[in-house]
Amino acid sequence: MKTFDKLVTWSLLKSPWILHFNSGACNGCDIEIVDALTPKYDVERFGMVLKATPRHADILVVSGPVTRQQAKRLKTIYDQMPDPKFVMAVGACGCSGGVFNGCYGVIPGIDKTLPVSVYIPGCPVRPEAIIDGVVKLIRSVEGKK
C-alpha cells in the first residue's frame, strides 16, 4: 500500500491534472485560466492538463464567487474527484466574494463551500499568478511527502 501511495504522489507531482469549474464568475478569470494553457504561457509543459471530468482531476480550479445555484453542483463535483484532491480558489471573488460580496445570489468565497488549498488573488488573476499558485501547491505537497 505504501508503494501505491508513493506512486500516487509521484504522478500528482509530475503531472497534475486540473478541472476548471466556473461557479458564477464574470469570465475574466476563466479566459485567463485558458490563456495559461495556450502558447504564450503554456502550463502544459509542466505536465498540467485540463481535463473534462472530475473523475480524472487532481486539482479543482474554481473561479467565481459561488452563486446559490452553483454551490450544490460545486460540492457534487468535488465529491466526485478521487483523493488526493486540492482546490484552487482563483480570483478576488473566489477568495472572498470580491466585488460581489453582499449580492443576494452569492455565497461569498469558495471556502464557505469547500476546503481551499491555494488562494490566488487578483481581479482578474494574471496567468503568471495561476502558474505561481500551482507551483506553490506542488511544493507544499512535496514538503509533506
Partner: peptide, 23 residues
C-alpha cells in the same frame, strides 16, 4: 438560465455611481 445569477442589479442600487462602474 440562472446558474450565474449573482444579483448585480440589486447590488448596483446599494453602491455609488463610481463604485457601480467597477461592479
Amino acid at each position: 438560465l440562472g446558474y450565474n445569477h449573482r444579483g448585480m442589479e440589486k447590488a448596483a442600487e446599494e453602491r455609488t455611481y463610481i463604485q457601480d462602474l467597477y461592479l
